[in-house]
Amino acid sequence: MTLVTTKEILEDAYANRYAVGAFGVHNLEIMKAIISGAEAAGVPVILQTTSSTYKYFEMPYLIALANAAAEQSSVPVALHLDHGESLKHVMECLRAGYTSVMIDGSGLPFEDNIKLVKRVVEVSKAVGVPVEAELGTIGGVEDDVVVDETKSVFTDPEMAGRFVHETGIDSFAPAFGTAHGAYREEPKLQFDLLDQIRQATNVPLVMHGASGVSEESVRKAIGLGVSKVNFSTELKDLFAEQLRSYFIEHPAENDPRKYFLPARESLTKLVEKKVRMLQA
């Protein structure tokens, strides 16, 4: 099948209180592992990249690989821009063939954030592509997105309601205690706040920074409207760990077909575990 948008799969997840996994893609091996893990569980999946990742891939290669993966996949696959930094980056992805975009204006003043997001919604919906946006500040590090965790700002439910209503976005990423990157300790998620945001917005919610969040917390968040859950750090950590272990045991090996395989197989199992967890 061809790449699908995130709109239909997230609306179904929101209505039926489960979530779809969105996984950071950094190379072909990781992409194949994500698809294989989703197929093993028989659930839709979202491939996502930041702008730095598609620049690393080079867009024509990334799109060709994503289209090939979707065409051969037995489950629906969407391609999503994560943390789009500007209208320019969004337009690059729309022209290339992304089927979902996020514009991140969370660092802007509230009114400026609304203005930017409304413009992105206007151009994206003209070509049938749904939009995710963020209000509040989700701390941590993800690729080239760096936010001081001590300056994280929780999302205000009343402002969230206005933000979603005025922009017309399809999914909403609130700040309720998660952070990008690795956690030093289990994060203290604000579930009461999340519930208030759900009631104020009534659109699928997105959990950023899910790597390292306990299964219990993820499931509780899904029950409160989270329909898309982002994972990246855990995948990168495991991939690197498997490569290091392989070369310790096989220091003279030079065949990528051999040293990439165990790393990819490990990621496939991790992705399958994660997406099954989301079927709360």
Results as ranks from 00 to 15, higher is better:
Ala33Asn: 09
Asp170Thr: 04
Leu189Val: 11
Ser214Phe: 09
Val77Ser: 03
Thr150Phe: 00
Met277Thr: 14
Pro251Trp: 14
Val4Ser: 12
Ala15Pro: 02
Asp255His: 14
Ile169Arg: 00
Gly212Cys: 08
Met159Glu: 15
Ala221Tyr: 02
Ala221Phe: 05
Ile30Tyr: 02
Met1Gln: 12
Val75Arg: 07
Met102Phe: 03
Lys7Val: 07
Gly181Pro: 05
Asn16Glu: 04
Thr49Ile: 03
Gln242Trp: 13
Glu185Asp: 06
Pro60Asp: 10
Asp12Arg: 12
Glu58Val: 09
Glu216Val: 10
Val90Tyr: 04
Arg162Ala: 01
Tyr183Leu: 02
Val129Ser: 11
Met277Ile: 03
Asp112Arg: 13
Gly161Ala: 15
Ile103Asp: 09
Met1Tyr: 09
Ser100Asn: 02
Ser36Phe: 01
Ser232Trp: 12
Glu272Phe: 05
Val229Gly: 00
Gln242Asn: 15
Leu193Cys: 07
Val77Tyr: 04
Ala70Ile: 09
Glu39Phe: 06
Leu3Cys: 10
Gly223Met: 04
Met102Ser: 06
Val90Glu: 03
Ala68Cys: 08
His26Trp: 09
Glu234Trp: 08
Tyr61Gln: 12
Thr268Gly: 10
Phe239Arg: 10
Ala179Cys: 07
Glu265Thr: 13
Val75Phe: 09
Ser52Val: 13
Glu111Gln: 15
Ala22Asn: 08
Thr99Ser: 06
Pro60Phe: 08
Val25Ala: 14
Phe260Asp: 07
Lys188Glu: 10
Lys118Met: 08
Lys125Pro: 03
Leu81Val: 07
Asp237Ser: 11
Asp192Gly: 15
Arg95His: 02
Glu122Asp: 13
Asp143Lys: 03
Leu62Val: 07
Val101Gln: 03
Glu249His: 13
Phe239Met: 13
Glu166Gln: 09
Glu234Asp: 15
Glu92Tyr: 08
Leu135Arg: 05
Pro44Lys: 01
Met159Asn: 12
Val129Met: 06
Met1Ser: 12
Val206Cys: 07
Glu11Leu: 13
Gly42Lys: 00
Gly24Met: 04
Ser100His: 01
Leu10Trp: 10
Arg95Ile: 03
Arg162His: 11
His80Phe: 06
Glu122Cys: 03
Pro130Tyr: 09
Ser211His: 11
Lys236Asp: 07
Glu158Ser: 12
Ile169Lys: 01
Val121Pro: 01
Glu216His: 11
Lys151Trp: 01
Met31Tyr: 06
Leu108Asn: 13
Thr233Ala: 06
Ser124Phe: 05
Asp143Cys: 03
Ala200Met: 10
Val43Ser: 00
Gly209Leu: 11
Ile46His: 04
Gly42Thr: 00
Gln48Arg: 13
Leu243Thr: 11
Glu253Gln: 15
Leu81Asn: 06
Ala221Asp: 05
Asn27Phe: 08
Thr137Gln: 12
Lys7Gly: 01
Leu193Asp: 05
Ser211Ala: 10
Asp195Glu: 15
Glu241Tyr: 10
Phe191His: 09
Arg264Pro: 08
Pro174His: 01
Gln72Arg: 15
Gly161Phe: 11
Lys88Asn: 06
Asn230Met: 06
Gly105Arg: 11
Pro187Trp: 04
Arg264Asp: 07
Met31Gln: 14
His89Pro: 00
Asn16Gln: 10
Tyr56Glu: 06
Glu134Gly: 03
Phe110Leu: 12
Ala240Phe: 12
Lys188Ala: 10
Leu108Trp: 09
Ala173Trp: 01
Val77Glu: 09
Lys273Pro: 02
His26Asp: 05
Val206Ile: 13
Phe231Thr: 02
Glu241Gln: 15
Asp237Arg: 13
